[in-house]
Nucleic acid binder design. Structure first.
Lengths: 144, 144
DNA sequence: CAGCATCCGCTGGGATACTG
DNA sequence: CAGTATCCCAGCGGATGCTG
């Protein structure tokens, strides 16, 4: 295994021809970021590393329910895109430390912004869901 | 099929016990937002609808390569979480219009912020990737 | 300790066909 | 036109076992 890195899948963004302003490009860029940071663990990892540098097993313990494989994959992805550094200390037993890069710390800002927004709007989303689901079940009940 | 809505999967966020400040909650919230907006099409749909209200087939045409099924799923998800409204006009042939809610327009802001950041950092990420990939191939070449 | 390798289930997303 | 209903596949994320 080697070049699974070469493809990050980045949501293919459609032409959307007539959209003029900052469209495809904007979409594509968001896609790139989300493709990296939008997976199950990346954000938490970035957040943890913003608190302090950590080694592999510390991260694993902190995350709790993640598998080594997935943590490794996550860290490799973040490393590839320049969000974290990976420092190997060749001792026995081996020691590998992970730290945020400037880009990684930088990313923290817009992501946190998004998080704050999410926190603020949480109730609204939950409410919207309840309404929608209630409506849906009423419909399917009527259909019976 | 009916209650596929009831679960949005929202990245399960681990306990991460010792993380004190705004950790699990923050992560969970970002997870929720990303689970909705982090898929392949949601952001573009929101962006399109921010330009003007559109009906189903307009959206489909604008997106180009999306299938009906996926567009429907995407729109249902956005509707459920309160980002868009769905207005049926019972004529023949049927007409359904989609529009952003206040929450939807509101979401545009942090998302755009993220997009701008992504746009700004694009080069850096690309550079980081080239470095990483070059290193990786050198390693595997050495291994031969 | 920090990892690869392997196997596996689940779901996101696409293609196609059919309906009110 | 705006969907539903099916079938299908790729890929993520998880579990387990093995190594330097």
């Amino acid at each position: 295994m080697k070049p699974s890195h070469s493809k990050v899948t980045a949501r293919s963004c459609a032409p959307a021809q007539f959209v003029r302003h900052l469209p495809a490009d904007l979409c594509h860029s968001v896609g790139e970021v989300l493709a990296r940071v939008g997976d199950k663990w990346s954000i938490l990892v970035i957040y943890l590393l913003s608190q302090r540098d950590m080694r592999f097993s510390e991260l694993k313990r902190s995350l709790g329910s993640i598998s080594q494989k997935v943590l490794t994959t996550t860290l490799r992805g973040l490393e590839r895109d320049g969000y974290v550094t990976r420092t190997i200390t060749p001792v026995i037993p081996p020691r590998v430390d992970y730290a945020l890069t400037r880009l990684g710390r930088d990313a923290l800002e817009p992501v946190t912004e998004l998080a704050m927004w999410a926190l603020k709007r949480r109730k609204e989303v939950e409410a919207a869901r309840r309404v929608f689901d209630a409506k849906a079940s009423r419909v399917s009940a009527t259909a019976d």
